[in-house]
Design a protein around this nucleic acid. Structure first.
Length: 898
RNA sequence: GCCCGCUUAGCUCAGUUGGUAGAGCGCUCGCUUCACACGCGAGAGGUUUCGUAGGUUCGAGUCCUACAGCGGGCACCA
């Protein structure tokens, strides 16, 4: 048998994925059971411009673990992949490419530019999907979707038309977030507020008084250039200082305008000077005030962030920052600049290009959210859907945000995206329709111009859970896979995406798009910083795959789950070692596989099996149960820990060692065949348990096991090519969980450990065999030790094991106490240093005494005995009795040394 | 300003109905024992202890209150 000593992940990672894919293992159609339950997940569509980062790898790992697990449990499983067209990002990427050729998108024109984007998409887009194959993601590629696909575009138009017809979508003139660089409007969610050090300018406006008396009102601003568009000065209605001025006017410097002083609740008397300049055309709060007081809106900054004609001849055409300097300079010359102070404030920047946002009044399309919002909130309050994991804090974050939701700006001044299905007649009539033909029919004329804007990228994403399944058609996929089972995503798109999907799902299907929402943690760098492109502190998952293997990386990511975790190569290394351990355990089984058959060896009366066989089957079933429970509750870390310890501690450290003598016997025999079959069968079950987490190594090893064929597949997949991913996930059988075997095994393990401890502490040479004398008053315990005499001798490196009712060891023996009142002694004539041994025993006794003192204090408290449940009191008494027994034995041992 | 999370062994983190503090890495000692040195065996390490101070309870890492440090979200910012 030619198996390398070290597992090389690369080979397995190259082979199996293409085979799985080619054989259709990822598609739900592989399941032949018409009554099979359904499990479905839609991927959060990554941007077409994106490449794989740790956040994706984390989400994908969790989705794949769940999908593979359910598939092995016989579910009709769909994990649907796809991508988002990512309007602004993609347009930026392609524009940048054009720029290298000295062109702008305007040079090409809209049609050619969009063609160019599609070309880019085909050639360089979707790197991430290739990388997903390496991750082992078992997505159904036959159902891959893109938000600009024909079908999804149809869904977008359908939704737009329906919402428009219901009056939920409307066109209006409002103040919006404008990015002067990208030349488009942005929703509030696409704007980053970043703190910035700046200046606060105190400007004085002369008041026009009846008697010609000189009086000035001071206003403060961080944007002096906007004063050119001021149409009022506002003060608090309760402010005594200004009360008499309300109703009078000020002469706005640098302009020939006279503007009123108004009173508005928005102004806080205590803040700043208590007087606020009001620029309705360039500030959202001022806009609202302007509406309240019917103030004119004077636009002084245009879409390129340059000053308009209305800003006055002196300023027209200037950049906003140049204009700022000039305004300040002019105020200074006029003696109206009171002071300039340093000031820290938040500034709104475009999420994509980081340009400072300019609030502008503009005509855009909006979606009214109150009705949609109320339905989502009701779903949460009445039915607690969707169920968030972790529930704290995300359920509250979600509902709080919904409660304060405002209308959604859905139009964007871009070329890449879903063009708004609205047409205008020559006389300005608006026709909203599913197609141009429909629009012509509605308008009764062919002379139509389509709205030039496109829809916000999220306007297609919010339909993703059903548009990908064929909606608005009543497709079989929609009926089968909607609602999806769970959504796994990052917390930063709960508002942008998760909440909107719930609203769209309720509105158009009448049902929540997913039962559960699992929010992943964030993978941070080793200093606890977020990984980001600008900080260059990101760790590329592909590099980690190359270095440690995909399976090891997946275990780390599964352990991350929902907690923020600092990335640490040590952890991947430890799981790389685990993969190697699995490899070598299998290597051992395969080197001793002659005569073995997977699935055999555990025949006959369970009670007659050897202890270690009953024990490992019990451990296997408990592990299956715990993994199942952990996954049901999305406790991925728990599942990984359980599997790790089952495989390494129970299976490798104990089961293989306990059976080694039988398995490696030189003479072939039915007993040897059976022992070999048992160990390889347990291995096979363990590989199945591990498969959702470690798809590659488990498949690689499973394929090598003797006797692998289609018969091992889950009944739902009968007829498929043999692969571990279509076997049945081990189900816990409570009748195989044998507490008796587990406690007997603990006694054996404890005995071996105590002898090993003595050997090590007293520096017995590893090769030296020792005599082990056991004294146990309980007959059943003596029987357990006797039945496992050979294994104990082997693992404790003993020449013989003497088992008696009472311990009768030579004076020169090292001793230890076991549970159940048993004792063990290792005669070490000539080796033992009496003083050293007394000290060792004293140390152990000290530990016992400490624990006993603690328990005694607890029992001595009358309140405890009175109020604690009898079961707990009994437990403490039992433990104390055990310690007392051990302490007595210790005293006798110390006596024996004298 | 409002809301939330985190603070447990040197490091990274588990600890889900309150009931004997755990893992991996690192460290110490001993081993090339015929699957594996990416390994095997043994051990130290948390001041009666889980950021600090109180409280509830027979009993608190776990529940409550306040505070501190770190991190996150939202709002405002003339």
């Amino acid at each position: 048998m030619d198996i390398p000593k070290t597992y090389d992940p690369k080979e397995a990672e190259q082979q199996h994925y293409t085979r799985w894919e080619a054989q259709g293992c990822f598609a739900p159609e592989i399941n032949r059971d018409p009554s099979a339950p359904v499990y479905s997940i839609v991927i959060p569509p990554p941007n077409v411009t994106g490449s794989l980062h740790m956040g994706h790898a984390l989400q994908h790992t969790l989705m794949d673990v769940l999908t593979r697990h359910k598939r092995m449990c016989g579910y009709r499983t769909l994990w649907l992949p796809g991508m988002d067209h990512a309007g602004i990002s993609t347009q930026l990427v392609v524009s940048r490419e054009l720029k290298k050729e000295g062109l702008s998108r305007h040079d090409l024109g809209r049609e050619k530019f969009v063609e160019r984007v599609w070309q880019w998409k085909h050639e360089s887009g979707g790197q991430i999907l290739k990388q997903m194959r390496r991750e082992g993601a078992s997505v159904d590629w036959s159902r891959e979707r893109f938000t600009m696909d024909e079908g999804l575009t149809r869904a977008v138009r359908e939704v737009f038309v329906r919402l428009y017809e219901e009056g939920l979508i409307y066109r209006g003139k409002r103040i919006v977030n404008w990015c002067p660089n990208d030349q488009t409007v942005l929703s509030d969610l696409e704007v980053d507020k970043t703190p910035q050090a700046g200046k606060l300018y105190y400007l004085q406006y002369p008041v026009k008084t009846a008697n010609g008396e000189e009086r000035r009102v001071t206003v403060a601003t961080t944007r002096p250039e906007t004063m050119l568009g001021d149409t009022a000065v506002a003060v608090s209605p309760d402010d005594e200082r200004y009360k008499e001025l309300v109703g009078s006017t000020v002469l706005l410097p640098l302009t020939s305008r006279e503007i009123p002083i108004i009173a508005d609740e928005y102004v806080e008397a205590e803040f700043g000077t208590g007087a606020v300049k009001v620029t309705p055309a360039h500030d959202p709060n001022d806009y609202d005030m302007g509406v309240r007081h019917d103030l004119p809106q004077i636009v002084v900054i245009d879409q390129h962030a340059r000053m308009t004609e209305d800003a006055g001849a002196l300023f027209a055409g200037l950049d906003r920052y140049k204009a700022r300097e000039l305004v300040v300079q002019k105020f200074e010359e006029l003696g109206l600049l009171e002071k300039v102070v340093d000031y820290e404030f938040s500034i709104s920047k475009c999420e994509r290009c980081k340009t400072v946002i300019e609030p502008l009044i503009s005509t855009q399309w909006f979606c009214r959210m109150d009705e949609l919002r109320d339905r989502a909130l009701k779903l949460m309050s009445d039915e607690k859907k969707p169920r968030f994991t972790p529930e704290v804090p995300y359920e509250k974050v979600y509902t709080d945000w919904l409660e304060n939701l405002r209308d959604w700006t859905v139009s964007r001044q871009l070329w890449w995206g879903h063009q708004i299905p609205a047409w205008y007649t020559e006389d300005g009539q608006v026709i909203v329709a599913r197609s141009e033909e429909e629009a012509r029919a509605k308008a009764g004329t062919g002379e139509l111009t389509q709205d030039a804007d496109v829809l916000d990228t999220w306007f297609s994403s919010w339909l993703w859970p059903f548009s990908t399944l064929g909606w608005p058609d009543e497709t079989a996929d929609l009926k089968t896979f909607y609602p999806t089972s769970v959504l796994i995503t990052a917390r930063d798109i709960i508002f942008l995406w998760v909440s909107r999907m719930v609203m769209a799902g309720m509105k158009f299907i009448g049902e929540t798009p997913f039962q559960d929402v699992f929010i992943t943690g964030t993978v941070l760098d080793k200093h606890g910083q977020r990984m980001s492109k600008t900080k260059l502190n990101g760790i590329d998952p592909m590099d980690v795959f190359d270095k440690y293997g995909v399976d090891a990386t997946r275990l780390v990511l599964a352990s991350v789950g929902s907690t923020d975790t600092r990335w640490n190569d040590n952890q991947v290394e430890s799981y790389r070692n685990f993969a190697n351990k699995i490899w070598n355990a299998a290597r051992f089984c395969l080197m001793n596989s002659e005569g073995a058959t997977v699935g055999k060896g555990f025949e006959g009366d369970h009670d007659k099996w050897a202890l270690h066989d009953r024990w490992i089957i019990s451990r296997l079933n408990k592990t299956a149960r715990e993994v199942d429970e952990a996954l049901t509750q999305y406790q991925f870390h728990e599942a990984v820990q359980t599997l790790y310890h089952f495989f390494w501690d129970d299976f490798c450290d104990w089961y293989i060692e306990l059976t080694k003598a039988e398995v490696t016997a030189e003479q072939s025999s039915p007993e040897r065949d059976a022992a070999r079959s048992r160990v390889i069968s347990v291995l096979e079950q363990a590989l199945r348990l591990l498969h959702p987490f470690m798809p590659y190594i488990t498949e690689e090893l499973w394929q090598r096991l003797p006797g692998i064929d289609g018969k091992l597949l889950h009944p739902a997949y009968t007829g498929a090519q043999p692969t571990i991913m279509l076997t049945m996930y081990p189900q816990s059988d409570s009748s195989s969980i044998d507490e008796g075997a587990e406690s007997e095994m603990s006694a054996v393990i404890e005995l071996i450990s105590r002898v090993r401890n003595i050997r090590s502490e007293l520096s017995v040479k590893p090769g030296d065999r020792v005599r082990v004398m056991v004294g146990a008053s309980e007959e059943s315990l003596r029987e357990v030790f006797a039945a496992n005499r050979d294994q104990i001798a082997r693992l404790a490196r003993a020449s013989e094991i003497q088992i008696n009712e009472r311990l009768d060891a030579p004076r020169a023996s090292a001793r230890a106490v076991l549970a159940g009142g048993a004792e063990v002694a290792v005669p070490l004539e000539g080796l033992i240093d009496f003083e050293q041994e007394r000290e060792r025993l004293a140390r152990e006794r000290e530990k016992l005494e400490k624990e006993a003192a603690k328990l005694e204090a607890q029992l001595a408290n009358p309140q405890f005995a009175e109020r604690a449940p009898a079961e707990k009191v009994g437990e403490v008494k039992e433990r104390l009795a055990d310690i007392a027994q051990r302490t007595r034995a210790h005293q006798q041992m110390a006596e024996a040394l004298k």
